[in-house]
Nucleic acid binder design. Structure first.
Lengths: 136, 136
DNA sequence: ATCCTACGATGGACCCAATCCAAGTCAAGA
DNA sequence: TCTTGACTTGGATTGGGTCCATCGTAGGAT
């Protein structure tokens, strides 16, 4: 975590108590929190921190590549702090729980050139859907 | 299209002029429209059709498996009438244009058993991201 | 240690997509 | 043709997110 804060400072990120708390919340649990959940946890550590500030900090962390946004349900975006380890997501259609998963091979490789329509393809996001053991 | 309407009637779908128009709009162009875009086109054919009705009809078509919802940008959901031909999506990070694509092989097969955590995996959604020729 | 100032935080208004609801309408079976 | 339960309507409401004017402060300069 201090690695993260150091990295951010090195990039000219002004280190405020609010930003520190948001970064700590994301680092604390290896989960997929919504912005409101991040805000709720941040408030516990720093009462009075505003929702707008949390949104700002999350947006900056995403822009800096430290956190990735995932939208698995068409509702609130979720923030995944595991940005430096490439992975995909497995989502339970029943309860919505999300697990990080690692498919075999390079997911980009299975898209043939003639199916790329001249695009320069840079990234791929995969969502596997099914029922978790508890919901099945 | 009349196939679709017949199929829906066969399933007890009460065929109203509004539902007919929504189905026709989706069938007309092979595109990925937002609910508001569907509404705008539906109004041209049936002035006065309400947004709520369009949302209702779209939700029913999705539930019936005739249309799939796609959320590629965290904003408005898009409705893809090409539900019976399995495919994935290639999205331009610049202009947002969406193309249907067909990767090689079975996308489910690349997820090893030990990465499924006991889930019964039923479906997979893949979004490839890159720059289209015009934006590159 | 103190000052300066540009960058960050605040919260309340605002926006967009979507859903809800009570009242009115109508498809289609009898 | 009648009847009725399913469908439509539009206006209010919700949920998630953004905007903005004002206030506060991190951290470099002195």
């Amino acid at each position: 975590m201090s690695d993260l804060l150091e990295r951010l400072r090195g990039r000219g990120w002004r280190l405020t108590s609010q930003r520190r708390v948001v970064a700590e919340v994301l680092d604390g649990d290896h989960v997929h929190l919504t912005a409101d959940e991040v805000h709720a946890r941040a408030v516990r550590r720093l009462p009075g921190i505003s929702r707008a500030t949390v949104y700002n900090a999350l947006g900056e962390l995403v822009a800096l590549g430290e956190v990735v946004e995932v939208t698995t349900d068409g509702r609130a975006k979720r923030y995944d702090p595991n940005a430096h380890r490439p992975h995909q997501h497995l989502v339970c259609s029943g309860c919505g729980v999300i697990r990080d998963v690692h498919p075999h091979g390079d997911p980009l490789a299975v898209l043939p050139t003639e199916e790329r329509f001249g695009f320069t393809v840079a990234a791929v996001e995969i969502t596997y859907r099914g029922q978790c053991p508890a919901c099945a």
